[in-house]
Design a protein around this nucleic acid. Structure first.
Length: 922
RNA sequence: GCGGAUGUGGCGAAAUUGGUAGACGCACUAGACUUAGGAUCUAGCGCCGCGAGGCAUGGGGGUUCGAGUCCCUCCAUCCGCACCA
């Protein structure tokens, strides 16, 4: 009997697709386009586990669905191939990262191809390929050669900036630049040396070099961007991170803060993810205000969002790093302040964060003058004020801010009530509701109105102005590592210049080892004779991991173009990504940087969209389910889970592949390690039961399930269906193979619909019955609607119902089955292709078209209305489709059954919800 | 602390606009066919009750003829941010 033989079928069709380039996509203006993209993987040595394909399956279903709906689909795949693990491995083994990366990529591709994805492999990109990173470098040069015009809200070439400087200096210019940029006139500009001019221009460039405090990770020997640091440790490897001043390349992403925020309103992304980006950008609207001090010529500028509380200010606080600290410290306080500042500076990021609740600070000895009341307010230094945010100085309002309140109480500073009716003795009240009191000209105003009034007065008196601040910082754009894109920058006389475009790509040089040099230079310092010309040298840092991933989605459109990063016409056809699937862990990294670069390329006219991803879906991670055995301490005996409390045991992770339904395969276990060969076991009911826990799927927990094993045992189609069946795409869920049989049985049942008991292919031309038509059209409708809302699990269920029903009806009508094959094909492409071919079609099922459904087939002539009495379901009654309400009402009330439920009472009300329910209220 | 999400049988989960809660699958139970079954088929399967019926969507309250769905409140779990003035 010829059973459903998935192995042969899958092999056959994968070969067919490759040979016929079935998934190739070309610009075709006669069809609407659809761009379905997955976040490309980093090819790690461990290979794919069952969690990786989840998102790929979903996007593949959509891609295949859109194809049979008549769209021209771009569905590519590639590799984010630069990165730390390959480099760490290289440091340990001396093996070139390019070699291991290539091997890993091959492994990934084999695994991916086994799952039947409809990727157009001709469009594959690898970020570590010089042909690709040529353009990453090219974009970097464009960023270097651009500045941000606040007036036009757009990036512009630096050459135009130079023209502005030559004509007017920078006095009237509205541009985004470093905070310490001096004001100069055209005349002053003309008087500068080339070197001085270049240094000034760096303060405007979107890719720039500056002296900044960076996150330095000593263990990795490199700087990290803010999104790569989690709780004071590096995200990769978990090494401690310290603050350090260094000259570093950065990207002026802050120039785009406002647009990055606004853009969120027009894209279809999950709300939580948008919220994360909003938080990260951290816009706050407030005002800056100057406080004069007792020291001649020194003013303290503060940023506040609550200028309405200005009369509640009882002291000012400076960040320890503020340069005003020195100027304002009196002789008597000098010693104390210096000690405090030094302690604060020496604390690592980690210490400072873990110590948030400790209140510390020191008085500078001097006083500032309240701009409105003229009162003296003491100036303090405290590390709860951050140098990197706002102006590095705050006006403290203990009545309205809990930190100020705590500080005031700790150091016994006054607390002044400024909003009527608030209770502020023990706690600050930060609500903006109530009338102002003790507040001079603000008295009697509502807090919200007082904000506007205070800003108005401050601007009138020229002591302050409305101001918007962002929490987001510029992104560090260099790593002191080998395995990344070399910066296309060289230095001459200590001034950085971009490499001429025709010299790109600047390829990674060969080096003898992948560690930093003896004198602490990055690994590229080891490269010999690696310089553009005598007297100049290349930048030794490489780009961060996010460089290539910030624009790769454009490259797929035109992956082999050697002249431009993407052909304009081609890009204008594909525009941007219609559906992007990937993990939410990239919320404040990749997904922000990609938006930034897209907006930049848009400003310069290289692309015609300013958002890269129209719709984004976060697939939930598939977690691992770890199993444990319990070793009796100091022995080679293992005790079953429910008996373990009788002994002193330690739990040991055991490879989940030796465990079935928590029952340990003792023979396999014994051969796991040599010293387990003579292990003894204390069993319960003759079995060894393992403990279990949900953890991240990882090699070190021995809980990795390889999709290859599932494909081998059940086939790729079953794996695809099962991963979708597991639950909603967005949800996190542990991997569990328990239910996979059900899905496999469905495929076999589906196969059997087309085959007789001898295994001969068999469909009939006999007209299908009403019931068969009904279930078929319902299923078509469901399949279509479910894909539109990415509800794949419910779709799989409806396929099963359909197969059950058709089997029960013994229906093997040709057209019905043909429709079924087509709607199933996005989910289980191999079996669908096979049956499609058996049905006599010569082309791939991707050339089929998705069937349309007709509600007539499953609409009944009459509706069955549930009837409820006082909201409680009581009976079912049939009514004709278009029966008027009055007739329905009459019929219901006349019914003896209903009379009984209403106990003969006359109803007060009869509610008829068309096509849904009839409710009688007594 | 702030922000966001989630909470439904033994388990994974359905329920698209408020309208018969638990579809579908797993596990389980009984039966059929079998030399046998980790194959297949049939039936059952939220809880209490012999039954009619009653109770059930984290707890409590509300709106409604009617609430898993809307509102308030509390609890639990997960995620993100965390001295951002």
């Amino acid at each position: 009997m010829a059973e459903y033989n998935f192995r042969d079928i899958e092999k056959k069709w994968q070969a067919y697709w490759a040979e016929n380039k079935t998934f190739e996509s070309k610009v075709d203006k006669s069809k609407p386009k659809f761009y379905a993209l997955d976040m490309f993987p980093y090819p790690s040595g461990a290979g794919l586990h069952v969690g990786h394909p989840l998102g790929y399956i979903a996007s593949d279903i959509v891609a295949r669905f859109k194809r049979i709906k008549g769209y021209n689909v771009l569905h590519p795949m590639g590799f984010d191939a630069f990165g730390l693990p390959a480099e760490q491995y290289a440091i340990q083994t001396g093996q070139h990262p390019a070699v291991t990366t290539r091997q890993n990529i091959e492994k990934y591709k084999t695994q991916l191809k086994n799952m039947g994805f409809s990727f157009d492999w001709d469009k594959e990109v690898q970020t570590c390929d010089p042909k690709f990173y040529k353009w990453t470098q090219w974009i970097t040069i464009q960023l270097f050669d651009s500045w941000y015009d606040k007036e036009k809200e757009s990036a512009r070439p630096v050459s135009e900036l130079v023209t502005v400087f030559e004509q007017d200096g920078n006095e009237k210019l509205k541009a985004v630049c470093d905070d310490d940029t001096p004001v100069f006139s055209a005349k002053e500009w003309a008087g500068l040396t080339t070197g001085q001019q270049q240094r000034l221009l760096l303060k405007y460039r979107l890719c720039y070099l500056s002296e900044t405090t960076v996150n330095w990770c000593p263990a990795l020997g490199t700087v990290l961007s803010n999104d790569e640091v989690k709780d004071g440790f590096s995200e990769r490897g978990g090494h401690p991170v310290i603050r350090k001043n260094m000259s570093q390349w950065s990207m002026r992403i802050t120039a785009y803060a406002e647009r990055l925020l606004h853009g969120l309103e027009v894209i279809d992304w999950p709300e939580p993810l948008k919220e994360m980006q909003r938080n990260w950008i951290g816009k706050s609207t407030g005002a800056e205000l100057d406080f004069a001090t007792e020291v001649e010529g020194v003013k303290i500028r503060v940023f506040t969002t609550r200028i309405d509380t200005i009369f509640g200010v009882t002291f000012l606080v400076l960040a320890p790093e503020s340069e005003l600290v020195e100027k304002l410290t009196t002789r008597e306080q000098e010693e104390a302040v210096r000690t405090y500042v030094q302690t604060a500076q020496n604390r690592s990021e980690r210490d400072r964060m873990s110590d948030v609740k400790t209140i510390s600070g020191v008085f500078t000895g001097s006083y500032a003058i309240h701009p409105f009341s003229g009162e003296k307010v003491p100036v303090w230094v405290a590390d709860y004020v951050l140098s990197g945010y706002g102006t590095g100085a705050v006006m403290a309002v203990p009545a309205g801010d809990s930190r100020d309140h705590a500080f005031a109480r700790h150091f016994d500073l006054p607390i002044v009530k400024i909003i009527e009716g608030t209770e502020i003795e023990h706690e600050a009240d930060d609500t903006k509701v109530g009338k102002m009191v003790n507040s001079g000209f603000l008295d009697g105003l509502e807090a919200m109105d007082a904000i506007d009034k205070a800003v108005e007065v401050a601007e009138e008196q020229a002591i302050g102005e409305a101001k918007i601040n962002f929490r987001m910082r510029d992104a560090i754009f260099a790593r002191q590592r080998y395995w990344g894109e070399p910066m296309p920058i060289y230095f001459k006389d200590n001034i950085p210049y971009p490499l001429p475009v025709e010299q790109l790509p600047l390829e990674l040089p060969e080096i003898d080892a992948y560690k930093p040099t003896e004198d602490g230079e990055p690994p590229l310092g080891r490269a010999r004779d690696w310089k553009p010309q005598e007297g100049s040298h290349y930048e030794l840092s490489t780009m961060p991991g996010w460089a290539g991933s910030s624009w790769y989605f454009f490259r797929y459109m035109d992956a082999h173009n050697e002249d431009v990063l993407v052909d304009k016409e081609i890009q204008e056809y594909w525009e941007n990504v219609d559906l992007y699937i990937g993990g939410s862990e990239h919320a404040t990294g990749h997904l922000l940087y990609a938006r930034f670069w897209t907006k930049f390329l848009y400003d310069l006219g290289y692309v015609n969209v300013d958002e890269p991803f129209k719709k984004l879906v976060n697939q939930g991670m598939i977690q691992g389910r770890s199993n444990f055995v319990y070793r009796i301490q100091g022995s080679n005996r293992f005790v079953s889970k429910n008996l373990k409390d009788q002994y002193e045991t330690s739990a040991i992770h055991v490879d989940v592949n030796m465990v079935d339904n928590d029952i340990l395969d003792i023979e396999k276990f014994k051969s796991w390690w040599p010293d387990l060969a003579d292990a003894e076991f204390i069993l319960e009911d003759g079995k060894y039961i393992c403990g279990s826990e949900i953890e991240k799927m990882s090699k070190r927990y021995h809980n990795v399930v390889n999709p290859d094993d599932i494909v081998e045992k059940y086939g790729a189609d079953t794996l695809r269906l099962y991963e979708m069946f597991l639950g909603p795409l967005e949800q996190f869920k542990p991997w569990n193979t328990n239910g996979i049989d059900g899905v496999f049985k469905f495929l076999r049942k589906f196969w059997n619909l087309f085959h007789d008991s001898q295994g001969n292919f068999r469909v009939s031309k006999e007209a299908p019955g009403k019931e068969a038509l009904k279930i078929m059209h319902q299923t078509i409708k469901k399949a279509e609607e479910d894909i539109d809302r990415l509800s794949f699990n419910t779709s799989v269920s409806s396929f099963m119902i359909c197969a059950n029903e058709l089997t029960r009806l013994q229906c093997n009508n040709r057209e019905i089955l043909e429709n079924f094959v087509v709607i199933l094909s996005p989910y289980a492409p191999h079996i669908a292709e096979e049956l499609w071919a058996k049905l006599g079609h010569e082309e791939s099922i991707l050339n089929a078209s998705f069937p349309s459904y007709h509600e007539d087939y499953f609409k009944e002539a009459a509706y069955e209305y549930p009837v409820s009495v006082n909201g409680k379901m009581r009976a079912k009654m049939s009514f004709a489709l278009d029966m008027p309400h009055e007739d329905i009402e009459k019929q219901v009330l006349a019914s003896e059954v209903i009379q009984r439920w209403t106990e003969g009472k006359t109803p007060r009300k009869v509610i008829i919800v068309p096509k849904k329910i009839v409710n009688i209220v007594v």
